[in-house]
């Protein structure tokens, strides 16, 4: 017997590749440390998730909604530090995954 697939309509969810790979994906929800909304949701000012409301990675390994972090950095209280560990914020170069 041979099975020939002609056409397959499938359903998938997209996820940010935050580097913290969790094979099952749905155990601990990754949320933005600033707005407490899941990364796959969107920051409080956006309406569309995903490419319209991207993430930003810090050298310190913390990840935020980009809009949330920029807004935070824009406040004097931030002193340009990561809100989680108070180290100076340095945006990480994204390693291209899939290797």
């Amino acid at each position: 017997m041979k099975v020939v697939i002609n056409r397959w309509h499938a359903i998938a969810q997209w996820q940010w590749d935050t580097g913290r790979t969790d094979e099952h994906g749905d155990t601990e929800e990754d949320v933005c440390g600033i707005c407490r909304v899941p990364f796959e949701g969107c920051c409080p000012t956006c309406k569309m998730p995903g490419d319209d409301c991207p993430l930003i990675w810090g050298e310190c390994s913390h990840v935020f909604h980009m809009h949330c972090l920029l807004k935070w950095i824009g406040t004097p209280a931030s002193k340009q530090q990561c809100p989680m560990d108070r180290r100076p914020w340095v945006t990480a170069e994204r390693k291209v995954s899939g290797s």
């Binding site: 017997m1 041979k2 099975v3 020939v4 697939i5 002609n6 056409r7 397959w8 309509h9 499938a10 359903i11 998938a12 969810q13 997209w14 996820q15 940010w16 590749d17 994906g25 995903g50 490419d51 991207p54 993430l55 994204r94 291209v96 995954s97 899939g98």
Partner: peptide, 20 residues
């Protein structure tokens, strides 16, 4: 989409196939 990956909901959808 380099920053994203897919998680398949494998039980959902439809497959059209030939059984030879």
């Amino acid at each position: 989409k380099p920053d994203k990956k897919l998680r398949w909901l494998s039980h959902l959808g439809t497959v059209n196939l030939d059984i030879q």
